[in-house]
Design a binder for these strands. Structure first.
Lengths: 341, 341
DNA sequence: GTTGGCACTTGGGCATAAAGAGTGCTAACA
DNA sequence: TGTTAGCACTCTTTATGCCCAAGTGCCAAC
């Protein structure tokens, strides 16, 4: 069977309607709301066709239709209208970023908050830990007799602060020297390269071997984690949506969003160049949720991903427009702070 | 009416039973489980007395009794038996702290996780930002032309890292000098004192006025926040408890624990010297939840609070024993790392 | 002060009935 | 050939009545 233009249009109506009402949609309601020129009987036969093609299904024999995962995928890919933010919403976004934030993390925190508020879904963000980050400086200074604070900086930010242990007999000057040596050795190099540096390099550092090892370990830990803290807002928003009136489903959803590793993985798959990526359905597993995400970056380097996670029946139009709106402002904010160089 | 010993005992049985079964408890079940020597009729009249005194209530005329908030308060204050952790639970706690953590925050994170797992409730923790913290060192070093990284350290930890702007023409040496001057001025002083330092001091810093102001501002911001990030684990645990099978209640609870400021306030009221503090019921507002919390400290300084938040019908015995167990291990861990001085 | 007995209240479970929503199918029509 | 009206059929939802089990409160007797 062919997916005629009319079928597409009808499918779009079904999904639009279902997204806004959360009720299975009937042939009659389509006829009344969207296609007064076509009888419900005709629409019925089209719906039957769409069902046969796997785009729709019926909860039970005598109920309206509900979109399938395939339908949602088609919807976000080509059916969905692009909507625009209202002035009010735009204003809300802007005012959320008004208070000048200290650092990127706070900015992202604000972003996540306003996204969750405007969309009424759970919003998440996560900084990317990239192997491609380039080290700018290694700083170490003594804090206690046998403890020192290690800082590792890239062009963009402070990627690691950690207390490491140092031999008590080592002088402050020696510690500084060690840090300087490492800065010289690492500066301009990518994290990924550094951890692969040949072992013989360590020979140069014979005197400061322990410190060197600590630094290498800190970098490795950073890369291994692959991602920073997950920032999340509006975990309870899901309860505002009627399909989650069942505690079992809520439990399920909460356990999904509690699994930080899983969320991070989701956020970081194939979101390379795509502006906004929409993942409908839990892909591999049977979880029925969707993730809409976008990335933020500075001078071409991907700094992280932010997005919205919610039910399959998500208001994709709104979510996409909110993410775009926030994205634009984020972009400007990051650019501004970069120009301070 | 007098609260006789027998009434107390019966009240304890009612609460014990209700905590473990989540069902209103009847005179008959008390007779069978706890007081075979007393007839159910006698117990009934005692229950009626307890109800009259406000400790019990009936969901409806012909159902068993349910404890009131007053009853819970009395219970945790004097009725409740102290229980001990099983070897298995103790083992679980210990193994949770096995992986040596980098810093205090990670340790607390582990603590919160294991508490939530063992108790099956939502667990929270929050570092205290104390005005009484004593500054040990101020470090500043240049990151970009007009940007420097400011670090403020106390005896215990790094309390603040922040990028501040610096005049481009300032040399690295000057920046270091400014940091040194401030360290000299601030070392050994409490944060609270520092922000109250007379304005004329700033005159000494005429050359480095901007930097000085940035540092003061950073300290003020730190104190103003009063508390650090809230660490939370097991937000969804509430769903494992039968009284939250209603999505409205879940929504309510989630909104309570989403309000970070409120949680922080709760964690930091009157938990000064009390070993373990139990707050039953939302005190002022009508929210029906309880918070059981304890503090962790290093050499007498309160570093923060951790605890459990859950329904009124909470297994207080278990929660208290888990918090105590975790507390002991935390204490040792913190002491150990202090001995590294 | 304690107890057994008994009347009374209430919620939960279950079957039945009726109403409502929607579909699929068929026959007729343009 | 596509569209439409009509109708029978299915399934869910809601209401209703009914009965049972669980508990209580009270009273009279011990």
């Amino acid at each position: 069977m062919k997916l005629s233009d009319r079928k597409k249009k009808i499918l779009q109506y079904v999904i639009d309607d279902y997204i806004s009402t959360a009720q299975p949609v009937s042939s009659k309601s389509i006829n009344e709301k969207y296609l007064p020129d076509l009888s419900s009987a005709t629409i019925r036969s089209e719906l039957a066709g769409l069902e046969e093609m796997g785009y729709l299904s019926q909860p039970h024999t005598s109920s309206g239709r509900v979109p399938s995962i395939e339908a949602y995928k088609l919807y976000v890919a080509e059916l969905m209208d692009k909507s625009k933010l209202t002035g009010k919403e735009l204003g809300k976004i802007k005012s959320a970023f008004k208070d000048h934030a200290d650092n990127l993390e706070e900015v992202v925190q604000n972003a996540v908050k306003v996204i969750s508020e405007l969309t009424d879904y759970t919003s998440v963000a996560c900084a990317a830990h990239s192997e491609n980050d380039v080290i700018k400086k290694v700083e170490i200074f003594r804090h206690k007799k046998n403890q020192a604070l290690l800082l590792i900086l890239t062009e963009n930010t402070l990627i690691r602060d950690k207390f490491i242990s140092v031999p008590p007999q080592m002088t402050d000057g020696q510690i500084a020297e060690a840090a300087e040596m490492m800065t010289k050795l690492f500066v301009g190099k990518k994290l990924g390269e550094i951890v692969k540096m040949p072992d013989k390099i360590t020979e140069e550092f014979d005197t400061y071997r322990d410190i060197f090892d600590s630094v290498m370990q800190a970098i490795e830990e950073y890369i291994d984690k692959k991602k920073g803290e997950i920032i999340m807002e509006g975990q309870g928003k899901i309860l505002n949506h009627p399909e989650y009136n069942d505690t079992e489903k809520v439990k399920n959803f909460l356990s999904v969003i509690s699994d930080k590793d899983r969320i991070a993985d989701l956020l970081f798959t194939d979101s390379d160049d795509i502006e906004i990526s929409i993942k409908v359905g839990g892909e591999d597993d049977d979880a029925d949720y969707s993730l809409v995400s976008a990335t933020y970056s500075a001078s071409g380097v991907n700094l992280g991903t932010y997005g919205v996670i919610g039910p399959l029946r998500m208001d994709y139009q709104k979510v996409v427009s909110v993410l775009e709106g926030v994205g634009k402002i984020l972009e400007n904010l990051i650019k501004d702070s970069d120009e301070d160089d």
